[in-house]
């Protein structure tokens, strides 16, 4: 197999408007009076994670966020902490494993892991695992393999993975495997590239990638690339920049990013960027947002775009440098 690094060098990247994107992200977090702001309050922590992580990978987190801003964000994160040990999407909302992971990721990005009450977070996450190995997202019982990923990733970042039944968690994911090699939210659920990332990521964390049929799933993922270079999430759907991450990260974990035309994907992502006002949208000429901006940049990072100076890890969706600080070996160092 040809090495990833060799093939990456063959991609002639167009430029990424790093400064414009950075100011787009910073401005997006500043506008608090809009209706849109009110309606996204419940997932503010995820929004902060996407923004901060995008800035971190572009290497300008320090430049754009001074000590005051960092404190402001971290105290907001702290205000989202619930009694249960979980974090909520926004202050005053209910806790959920989705935002618990976001909170931990933000602390990791700001090198502030010491501010987490590890025991209470771990206890919360532990409490979400059900008898069949699956995880519910909160105490209301919704089960989804996304939550398994959130739980395992959270615990691994806190270095407490052993607190849950990892084998059972991975076995449950295996039950969600489909005829196409992909994974669904629950057994029988349709394969979806986003879900595939969470399942493959969780299996990578749980060290059970042997559950994956790499050839079949890798092929299915490679077929997500459509004529225009972009990736879709399911067969016969439209391409969307966010799948640049979901598909490519899974391919990356499986060591098969060279199964698609990365140059064409990079061109597609870069055509979705607004070079003047910053930000990346789902498809060319649509409105940019922080979500697509992050996943576009993350996708470019996996393909080795030179402007993304802090390469991102396909399993944890955090810069390699952040993982190293936590004592976690980045995926790129683990394989080949």
């Amino acid at each position: 197999m040809s090495s990833l690094a060799d093939e990456v060098t063959t991609i002639a990247f167009e430029s990424l408007a790093v400064d414009a994107h950075a100011s787009f992200i910073v401005n997006a977090s500043a506008s608090e009076d809009t209706l849109e702001h009110a309606f996204t309050e419940h997932l503010r922590l995820s929004g902060i994670y996407w923004g901060v992580c995008a800035l971190a990978t572009m290497g300008n987190l320090r430049k754009t966020m001074d000590a005051d801003k960092r404190e402001e964000i971290l105290s907001y994160v702290a205000s989202c902490r619930c009694e249960s040990g979980a974090y909520s999407g926004g202050a005053g909302h209910d806790g959920h494993v989705l935002y618990t992971l976001s909170a931990v990721q933000i602390y990791a990005l700001f090198d502030a892991m010491d501010r987490i009450d590890r025991d209470s977070v771990v206890n919360y996450v532990k409490g979400l695992q059900l008898a069949d190995g699956s995880f519910q997202g909160d105490e209301w019982g919704e089960v989804d393999t996304r939550f398994t990923y959130c739980a395992l990733s959270t615990l691994r970042l806190l270095d407490r993975l052993h607190e849950v039944d990892v084998e059972a968690a991975c076995a449950y994911i295996n039950k969600c495997k489909n005829f196409d090699g992909g994974f669904g939210a629950t057994p029988g659920g349709e394969s979806h590239a986003g879900q595939v990332f969470t399942c493959v990521g969780a299996l990578a964390i749980g060290n059970r990638l042997d559950y994956v049929d790499g050839d079949l799933l890798g092929w299915w993922l490679a077929e997500r690339q459509v004529k225009v270079g972009g990736l879709n999430g399911r067969p016969e759907k439209l391409p969307d920049v966010c799948y640049s991450w979901w598909v490519l990260s899974a391919l990356s974990i499986l060591g098969k990013t060279h199964w698609i035309d990365r140059g064409a994907l990079a061109r597609f992502i870069l055509r979705c960027q607004d070079e003047t006002s910053g930000g990346i949208s789902d498809r060319p000429d649509d409105e940019p947002d922080v979500y697509h901006t992050f996943f576009g940049i993350a996708g470019l990072s996996l393909m080795g775009h030179p402007a993304v100076v802090e390469p991102i890890d396909p399993v944890f969706a955090l810069p390699n440098s952040v993982l190293k600080q936590l004592g976690i070996e980045p995926w790129s160092a683990r394989k080949c």
């Binding site: 040809s2 093939e7 092929w219 690339q225 270079g229 098969k256 199964w259 698609i260 035309d261 064409a264």
Partner: peptide, 10 residues
Amino acid sequence: DPARGGYYRE
């Protein structure tokens, strides 16, 4: 299908 050339070569 050159886009997936890597897959076919493998």
